[in-house]
Amino acid sequence: MSDSRTLTDHAPYDALLLLSFGGPEAPEDVVPFLENVTRGRGIPKERLTEVGKHYFLFGGVSPINEQNRDLLAALRKDFAEHGLDLPVYWGNRNWAPYLVDTLRELATDGHRRILVLATSAYAGYSGCRQYRENLADALAQLAEEGLPAPTVDKLRHFYNHPGFVRPMIDATLAALAELPAGVRDGARLAFTTHSIPTAMADTSGDPDDPARSAPGGAYVAQHLDVARLIADAVAEATGVADRPWELVYQSRSGAPHIPWLEPDICDHLEAQHADGAPGVVMVPIGFVSDHMEVKYDLDTEALAKAAELGLPASRAATVGADPRFTAAVRELVLERAATERGAAVERCALGALGPSHDVCAVACCPNPRAARPAAAER
C-alpha cells in the first residue's frame, strides 16, 4: 500500500460478505440440505438418504458451519485489531444463514456496496460462477421485494496469495513430522482437490487467461501451481530435493459415464503402495477448511484405505482461520478498494500465474447446463 490512509481505507465498500456452501447441523437437516444442493436435477429422496450417510456418520452435522463461524470471528478480530472498520456478514448457498436472507439484512442495514469472499480459492463453475449466479438470484429477489439491491463485487481468486500458500506449507511439514522417522524422507505428497467433470475443467477460467488453454484449463493449472510452490518449499525445508508429488482428486459425485478428473485419492494410494512408496502425505489444497469432504473423504475413507494397504499416511490441515489467511483477506479487501478508487496497489501472488483478475468475464467458467445471469462480471 502506498500510504498510511490505504491501510484502513475500504471505500467504496461498506461491508464484506463471507459466502460459503453451507451444511446440515442436525440429522433432520441432512436430506433437506441435499435437496437444496441438487435442486432441479430430479434425484429421488431415497438416493439423497443414501448420499447423506457421510453426514449421518458425524451425527448429521457438517463441520463447515462451525468452520465458517470461526473464520467469521477471526476476520472480525483481525479487522478490528488493524483499524479496518468494515462489518463482516455471513451467508450460505444451501443452508442457513441463507444468502438471500443475509443480503436482505445487508440492504436493511443500509449497505450499498459489498465485497464478497467466497470460500473457494480457484477458478471453476462450482467454485466461482455458481456463487455469482446465486448472488444474481438473491439480488433479483430483493428487487422483487422492493428493497434497494446493493452492488456486489467478488474478491479475486486467492489460491496463490502468500496468506493461503504459506499456512499450507507449514501444515504439510507438520503432517510429514507425524509419520515414522524412517518414513519421512521417502514419503510422497498427494495434493488433493475436488474432482469435477473434465468438460467443466477444460472451460474453467477467463477465456483471455493463458491458463485456460492449458490441459484441464485454469482449474488444474492453478492447483498445479500451488502444488509446485508447496513441494518446492517442503524440499527446501527437509533437504529432500526429489520427493515425488502428484495432483489427485476426491469427492466425485457424478454419473459414471461422464469423465471426471482423475486419479481418485484412494486409487492413487493403491498405486503408490504398489510402487513401493514408504508413506504418503495428503495435502488438501483444494479446500479452505476441514469440512465434510475432508473429514470423510480423506480422514475416513482415504486413511482407511492406507491402513488397509499398510501404507503410512497422514493428512495436512487446511488453512481454516489461520491468522495469515485472515490477514490475506484484509489485504485483498484493501487491494480491491484501492483499485476501485484508481490508486496504485501491490497485488500479492506467488508462483508462475500471477494475481487473478478482479472481475470475471461473461464467458468465464460457463454453466454446463444452461446460461444464467451472474453477478460481478463484465
Rank of each mutant, 00 (worst) to 15 (best):
residue 8 T to L: 05
residue 211 A to Q: 07
residue 377 E to V: 12
residue 7 L to W: 12
residue 212 R to I: 09
residue 80 A to S: 13
residue 331 E to C: 13
residue 35 E to T: 14
residue 344 A to E: 15
residue 238 T to R: 04
residue 179 L to Y: 01
residue 240 V to F: 04
residue 41 R to S: 13
residue 251 S to L: 00
residue 364 C to E: 10
residue 146 G to S: 09
residue 50 E to W: 05
residue 72 L to R: 02
residue 71 L to Q: 06
residue 308 E to S: 14
residue 263 P to G: 07
residue 111 H to M: 08
residue 183 V to R: 10
residue 108 T to H: 00
residue 234 V to K: 03
residue 77 K to C: 13
residue 219 Y to M: 06
residue 207 P to Q: 01
residue 203 T to I: 11
residue 136 A to V: 09
residue 57 L to R: 04
residue 256 P to G: 12
residue 90 W to K: 02
residue 107 A to N: 09
residue 254 G to I: 05
residue 185 D to L: 01
residue 131 Y to D: 05
residue 22 G to V: 04
residue 124 G to I: 11
residue 263 P to L: 07
residue 146 G to H: 08
residue 6 T to C: 11
residue 197 P to Q: 10
residue 124 G to N: 09
residue 322 D to N: 15
residue 92 N to T: 04
residue 206 D to R: 12
residue 144 E to S: 13
residue 113 R to M: 06
residue 340 E to F: 12
residue 240 V to E: 13
residue 22 G to Y: 03
residue 313 A to W: 05
residue 98 Y to H: 11
residue 168 M to C: 05
residue 180 P to Q: 09
residue 103 L to V: 03
residue 267 D to W: 03
residue 276 G to L: 01
residue 372 R to A: 13
residue 209 D to W: 03
residue 141 Q to P: 06
residue 332 L to E: 15
residue 26 A to E: 12
residue 111 H to Q: 07
residue 150 P to V: 00
residue 96 A to P: 05
residue 347 R to Q: 10
residue 27 P to W: 05
residue 162 P to C: 08
residue 328 A to K: 05
residue 27 P to C: 04
residue 313 A to C: 15
residue 150 P to H: 02
residue 246 E to R: 15
residue 160 N to W: 06
residue 75 L to Y: 08
